[in-house]
Design a protein around this nucleic acid. Sequence first.
DNA 1: CGATTCGTTCAATCAATACTGAATGAACCG
DNA 2: CGGTTCATTCAGTATTGATTGAACGAATCG
Lengths: 161, 161
Amino acid sequence: MSESNQAVSAFIERMGLAAQSDGMPRIAGRMLGYFIIHGGPASLAALADSLQVSRASVSTNARILRNLGVLEATAVPGDRQDYYQLAERHYLRLLEGYVERMGTMSTSLAQAERELPADWDDAQARLADMHHFIDNARDNIRELIERLAQRADEKPPQGRS
Amino acid sequence: MSESNQAVSAFIERMGLAAQSDGMPRIAGRMLGYFIIHGGPASLAALADSLQVSRASVSTNARILRNLGVLEATAVPGDRQDYYQLAERHYLRLLEGYVERMGTMSTSLAQAERELPADWDDAQARLADMHHFIDNARDNIRELIERLAQRADEKPPQGRS
DNA sequence: CGATTCGTTCAATCAATACTGAATGAACCG
DNA sequence: CGGTTCATTCAGTATTGATTGAACGAATCG
C-alpha cells in the first residue's frame, strides 16, 4: 500500500516535470497524472487536497487543461461541485498542440518571405526551404492524428471506475 | 533598406518568441533567426553585436544550439575566432526533440505500469492505452523524419552566401 | 432571506531561469 | 616569452511566470 502510494506520487511528479519541459505549468501536468491514475470524475477540492496545492491553482490549471481539451467538465447528480474528467483520447490534444505551434511558425516564415526583398536570394531560399519542410511535417502529423483518432474509434477506450 | 531591417528584426524577434514557447531560451531562437536570414558562418562576436546581447549569452546559447544539432562549428582559414553556421537540415532536429520527449513520456508510463499493483484495473488500462498511443505516434513521427530527411537528400539544400 | 459552500479573480509572493559583467584560461602573434 | 584576442565559466541580478491567500460573486440550502 505504501508501496503503491509511493509509485503513484512518483508518477504524478514525473508528469509534472514532463509538462514543464513542454512549456506547461507543473501543476497542470500533475493534475493530468492524477486523472490517469485515479480516473473518473474528481472535484476541484479533491484535486487540491490530493495534490497539496491551493484551490486557486487547481482552478486556473483546470481551465488551462480544459481549454487544451484534455479535461472536460462533468456533473455529479446531487452534488453542486464542479467535476472534471479526462477527455476521450486526451492525448490527441497534445499532438494537436504541436501542430498548432508549427502553424504559427509557418506563418512567421511566410511573412518574412513576403516582407524581405525578393533579391535576398540566399535568405529567401533558406526561408522557403524551411517553410516547405514545416508545412510538410505539419500535414503529415495532422494526418497521423486523424489516423490514430480513427483507429481508436474502432476499439473505443474502456472502463469507467 | 530600413524597411527590410525592420522586417528582419521582426522575424528574428518572432523566432525568439517561438523558441520560448517551445521551452527554449529566447536568445537561442533569435540566434536561429539570425542564421536563417544571414546564413553563412558567423562569429560569436558578430552575433553578440547584431543581436545586442552579451558575449556570454551568445556563448552559452550557441552551445545549446550546438548540442541540439541545430548549429555546427566551422572554421574560417586565417581567423581564429569560432564560427558557427546552420547545420544541414537543422529543422529536422526540432522534430527529433519532440520524439525524444515522447520517449521519456513512454518510459514514465512503462515504469508506472510496472510499479503499480496489477489489479488496479482501470489505472492499468488508462496507462496502457496512453502508452500504446504515444509509442505509436513516436514511431510514426520518427518514420516521418526519415522520409523527410531522405527526400531532402535527393534535392539537397542550395546556396551558401 | 441569511448562511454556507463553491469557483474564480486579483494582487502579492515566491521560485526558476535567462542574462550579464567580471574573472579565468587557452590559443595565437610579435 | 609578454601581450592580445577569444571563448567559457561563475556569481550575481533581473525578469518571467507559477503559486498562493484573500476578496468577491454566484448558487444552494435551511
